[in-house]
Simulated scan of single mutants.
Amino acid sequence: MGSRRSDQFIRSIELSRDTVPSFTEYPFNLAAIKNLESLSFHPQVTFIVGENGSGKSTVLESIAVAYGFNAEGGTKNFNFSSRATHSHLNRYIKLIKGLRKPEDGFFLRAESFYNLATNIDKLDSEPSFGPPLIDSYGGQSLHEQSHGESFFAVFQNKFRGKGLYILDEPEAALSPSRQMSMIVRIHELVQQGSQFIIATHSPIIMAYPQARIYEIQEGFKIVEYEGTEHYQIMRAFINNTQKMLDILME
């Protein structure tokens, strides 16, 4: 699993704190950002975990946009926008890149995946001299599959390796067994020279071995897998289900 630091596509980010207008305003008042100076990434897989509203998706979005991806997801070639709701945090961060450039890349956002699927269908309905865009996603409209099937079709067909993949809550549409299949797919792509930066709530996905896990508390803290709050809560619930239910429902 070893990799030289220079082989990373993104080595780290730095927040230009002296240019931030105010740390009492959104998004700079979020737990993930208000104490942020720099954040380094694992050469292969980095997880960002934290409670809802902590800012993990905002940070992930800023990294993706600063790198050149569309704010609503897709490859660098997508430029659709259904609603301009992303923050401008990307204007205040600096990307520290490695020596290599990715040959592939994708920004997947669970919350705007529907818009991505719609845009693909729209582009394929227009005259084109090349093959249909959907061919690179498995050949079947993402809207004609279940939410989980369409998510997994992207992982299986669109991700080609030697790529930078930024994933925001990819477990949103996946069953537990599909989340385990995603670990397999991540590992295949890592072995093909890829780098992942993933925001997730899934104790299954974040179990990928030797990854770096940042948990957002009052800032970013590196934690071991079994030290994450997500793992501890899930383990406690599964091992003491009735007791936990009794406490929750009393």
Rank of each mutant, 00 (worst) to 15 (best):
R4A: 02
F113K: 00
Y225G: 13
I166L: 15
P43T: 02
E103I: 03
I166H: 05
H42K: 01
I120L: 05
K101H: 08
S16L: 13
T46L: 06
R83C: 10
E25W: 00
R91I: 03
S150H: 07
I238D: 04
Y231L: 03
K94S: 15
I216F: 14
L89Y: 13
K221F: 11
Q191T: 12
K76M: 15
N115P: 01
S112Q: 10
R100A: 00
I222G: 00
S62N: 11
Y225E: 12
I247M: 09
Q242K: 15
D104M: 13
G74A: 08
R109H: 11
F69D: 02
E111Y: 06
Y231G: 03
Q210G: 09
L99R: 08
I33T: 01
H86V: 10
L99P: 03
G53W: 09
R109C: 15
L36A: 05
Y67A: 05
I13W: 02
N157F: 03
I186D: 02
N157Q: 02
E61V: 01
M234Y: 01
S62G: 13
V184N: 06
S54I: 12
R160D: 02
I205T: 00
I120F: 04
A207Y: 09
A199E: 07
D7K: 14
E51W: 09
L36H: 06
Y165V: 10
V49P: 05
Q140C: 01
F23L: 11
Y137G: 01
E218G: 13
S3F: 02
E103Y: 08
R109I: 09
R17Q: 15
G148V: 09
S3R: 09
